[in-house]
Each structure stands twice: as structure tokens, then as C-alpha cells.
Simulated scan of single mutants.
Amino acid sequence: MKIRPLRDRVVVRREEEETTTSGGIVLPGSATEKPNQGVIVAVGDGAYLDNGEKRPLGVGVGDKVIFGKYADSNTVKVDGEELIILSEVDIYAVLES
């Protein structure tokens, strides 16, 4: 099944959780925080401005992004994979290498 976000929304695959600290301590699943970084897997077609024009999104598929810590309220499962649907304004930054 494919997912296609609407308007200014994006679908993000969250990065894997860190299970070991820098000191080598292994953390149980309940003690780890969900990462606030991920990779965009789908984007909408753009946001509509007040004058009716469509503005394309500033991010694209494959971009690694940082988003809000509590963004998982819009979590969906597609083919057994947990994905997050965010509005473009919920993305804080794009990580560039």
C-alpha cells in the first residue's frame, strides 16, 4: 500500500532509536526517547496561498529532517511500518551532509 499526503503534509520515517549510550550502557526500550529525526518518504503537492496560488514544499523525498518531539500524535502504520504524517511547518530543519 502507498501513502500520499495532501497539500503541505509530509510522511516521515523516524530514525531508529539509540539503545546504547556513549558510555556503552544498554538501555531498555522503555528508557529510550523517540528520536526527533527522520527521512521524508512522501510529500504533498503544496500549500494553497490566500490568493489561490499553490506554493510547492521546501522539502522533498529523501531529505533528512528534524521535527518536534511530540509529533508522533499523527502516527500511522503502513505495511507494518510506523510512519509520521507532519505538516511542513512542524519540520524545524533539514540536515545536509
Rank of each mutant, 00 (worst) to 15 (best):
K77M: 14
P28Q: 09
Y92W: 15
L57F: 07
G60N: 02
D72E: 15
L6S: 15
E17C: 07
T21P: 01
R9Q: 10
T32N: 02
I3D: 09
L6K: 14
V61C: 07
S97R: 13
S87W: 14
Y92C: 05
V10K: 00
V26M: 01
Q37Y: 04
V43D: 01
I25T: 12
T75C: 15
L27F: 01
L83H: 00
V43E: 00
V65L: 13
N74M: 14
G68C: 14
G29T: 11
V59A: 08
N74V: 12
V43T: 06
A42Q: 12
G62L: 05
E81S: 09
R55V: 05
G44L: 08
E88G: 09
V65Q: 05
V78W: 13
E88D: 15
V61Q: 02
G23V: 04
R9D: 08
G60H: 08
K54F: 03
I3Q: 08
T32Q: 03
R7T: 06
T75D: 14
T32K: 07
G29A: 12
E17H: 04
E88W: 04
G52L: 00
D72V: 11
L95A: 13
V10W: 00
G46P: 04
G68I: 13
S87K: 06
N51H: 05
P56N: 02
E16T: 04
E53C: 00
D79I: 10
A93Y: 07
G23F: 06
G46V: 05
L86D: 11
E96Q: 00
G58E: 12
E53F: 02
N51Y: 01
P35F: 05
P5Y: 10
E96W: 02
R4K: 10
Y92H: 06
F67G: 08
G80I: 10
E88A: 12
F67M: 11
Q37K: 09
A42G: 12
D90Y: 03
G58Q: 04
D63V: 11
G44N: 06
E53D: 04
D90N: 08
D79S: 11
G44W: 04
I85P: 02
S30K: 11
T21H: 04
V39W: 01
A31G: 04
Y92P: 03
L57Q: 00
V41R: 08
D50G: 12
S73C: 14
Q37H: 04
D50N: 10
N74S: 13
G29F: 04
S87I: 02
P5D: 07
L6F: 15
I84M: 11
D8H: 09
D45H: 01
V41N: 01
K64P: 00
L49Q: 10
E16K: 06
Y48M: 09
K2L: 10
K64I: 12
K77N: 14
A42T: 07
E33K: 02
G60V: 02
L95G: 06
E33M: 03
E82D: 15
E81I: 13
K34W: 00
D8F: 04
L27C: 02
R4H: 09
